[in-house]
């Protein structure tokens, strides 16, 4: 079935009494949430079998709008909570919604260890290059030369490539997509959800009100449209240096491996202890 014929209706998955949501006009996080719920709908995972864990930040708020089991936890710790949840309830499909600051700065250590353990969790990291909720401070993924409240003369710190980090730390599946390409994003998330192991999906999202305004990136529509210019489906390595990105970002599924899944190994270990 082609995407244009999809019968997916997002309202089946929303707590409608919570709407309109608190995100700013044009914020890319809404589009990312649609893609995630769309992927879940296509995989036909029942709502009772889902558990969303989210941290702090604009991204962390998304959990509140999903009509399912949702946990809103402390800053940077959604992966830690999710690990406990998945070990206790392996029957649940545990999905973490986190942001670039939440996942790479405050929760950076949890990310690398979640990748290392390879527990069957799907982590969707919304990368808007900034701490939007707290007023626009520089984050580990802020592109070079960009203005934030804490880098008034432009950012001079190097950028974190979250996907390379996750891949090197051993994540079972790593992918990246932009919100403009919603169907492609849905497909990458679908791959992540179906992979038995830790799946890390980075979504290039737009912070229109804080980051966009500060850097004069134009209105919401313009920001969504220009996403294309910073990504390139392939040929990551042979491109010219860009002023705002270390290089063009690659999109799609970038890595996949079949390392043993942690929960299975954990259970086997418990069984052997009981028998012994």
């Amino acid at each position: 079935m082609s995407e244009v014929d999809s019968k997916f209706n997002i309202r089946d998955y929303l707590r409608e009494h919570m709407f309109p949501h608190f995100l700013c006009p044009g914020c890319g996080h809404g589009i990312a949430l649609r893609a995630l719920l769309w992927a879940i709908d296509e995989l036909e995972i029942p709502k009772d079998k889902l558990a969303f864990v989210s941290g702090i930040g604009c991204s962390g708020r998304l959990g509140a709008y999903i009509d399912s089991n949702t946990f809103h936890v402390t800053h940077g710790r959604p992966l830690a909570f999710a690990t406990g949840l998945k070990l206790a309830r392996p029957d649940l499909e545990v999905i973490v919604i986190t942001g670039d600051g939440d996942c790479l700065a405050i929760g950076g250590n949890h990310l690398i260890h979640a990748c290392r353990r390879n527990l069957n969790i799907t982590c969707m990291m919304l990368n808007n290059e900034v701490y939007g909720m707290t007023g626009g401070q520089v984050s580990p993924t802020t592109s070079s030369n960009r203005f934030t409240t804490t880098t008034p003369h432009g950012n001079y710190e190097p950028v974190f490539d979250a996907c390379k980090l996750a891949e090197a730390a051993g994540a079972g599946m790593v992918g990246r997509e932009i919100t403009l390409q919603t169907p492609a994003l849905k497909n990458v998330l679908k791959e992540g959800l179906s992979h038995n192991g830790f799946s890390f999906v980075e979504v290039m999202s737009d912070c229109t009100e804080v980051f966009g305004r500060k850097n004069e990136l134009g209105d919401s529509a313009e920001m969504v449209l220009t996403q294309k210019s910073s990504v390139r489906p392939d040929g990551y390595d042979n491109t010219v240096e860009q002023p705002f990105r270390p290089n063009f970002l690659k999109t799609g599924v970038m890595a996949r491996n079949d390392r043993p899944e942690y929960a299975a190994a954990y259970r086997q270990h418990i069984m052997s202890m009981k028998e012994g």
Binding site: N9, I10, F19, P20, H21, P25, S220
Partner: peptide, 12 residues
Amino acid sequence: RLCPDFAISLNY
């Protein structure tokens, strides 16, 4: 697809 506020729907 691109409405970040889910304000538009095309019903089946």
